[in-house]
Design a protein around this nucleic acid. Structure first.
Length: 218
DNA sequence: CTCCCGATAT
DNA sequence: ATATCAGGAG
């Protein structure tokens, strides 16, 4: 586990490497962001943007999503993967938006997670990106980076990872740091190729040092 | 814990 | 061929 000083050095480095880290899911309003994040489960942002480009032309409102048969919506998002669950959730979510929310996307995590297909991570992204609520959404990248670098314990589940990060990072930096960690994970410390040899954080990264040692032995 | 799942990188 | 991708629900 890293010390507070080491963690702040990491945050500074993230900022130097990715000063303009941001949400890469294309969207024009909070409702489109909800749909985009829901679709992004176990799928790359690039592919989501490819699909939502046409999707958001065809479907503008919750009413539009429930006006078509489920099978049609499934086909419209099929290339995303997990498309049956996602299509079903989008229609259920649209019904809830109309029946209970007056067509307005809620601004708090607690309200957002009540929507079908919206869990803690999606709720945090929407609250943070669309409404400026301080939050740290723990996705696959944030979890991997937190564990490799030692922001949390290896065995922590996503809830524990989020708690650890919220405890160790100043609240006014939650949202920025969250995006920078995603960029760091997506473009530098990748799942399959961490690029330790060129990493500015190698000297304080236990995983990185282990990796380098293994490589040297082989 | 398992299942959902196509596209892409390695 | 296999791992991974801005996870969530049962």
């Amino acid at each position: 586990m890293l010390t507070k000083k080491e963690i702040h050095h990491c945050l500074d480095t993230f900022g130097e490497m990715f000063p303009d880290a941001h949400c890469e899911l294309n969207h024009a309003n909070p409702f489109e962001l909800v749909i985009a994040v829901l679709l992004s489960a176990q799928c790359t942002d690039v592919l989501v943007n490819k699909v939502t480009k046409g999707l958001f032309e065809k479907y503008k409102t919750p009413e539009d999503y429930i006006a078509v048969p489920l099978e049609e919506l499934e086909q419209d998002i099929r290339s995303i993967g997990l498309y049956r669950n996602k299509a079903k959730n989008i229609q259920k979510l649209s019904h809830m938006m109309i029946d209970e929310l007056n067509g307005i996307v809620p601004e708090t995590q607690d309200e957002l997670v009540k929507l079908p297909g919206v869990g803690r991570k999606t709720a945090n992204v929407v609250a943070s990106v669309a409404f400026g609520v301080p939050a740290i959404a723990v996705d696959t990248h944030v979890e991997r980076i937190s564990k490799r670098l030692g922001f949390c314990r290896w065995k922590d589940n996503v809830t524990e990872v989020e708690a650890a990060l919220m405890k160790k990072i100043p609240m006014d930096e939650w949202s920025v740091t969250h995006h920078r960690m995603i960029f760091f994970g997506r473009y530098h410390c990748k799942a399959q190729s961490p690029n330790c040899p060129e990493c500015p954080l190698l000297n304080l990264c236990r995983e990185g040092k282990k990796r380098m040692k293994r490589k040297a032995g082989a």
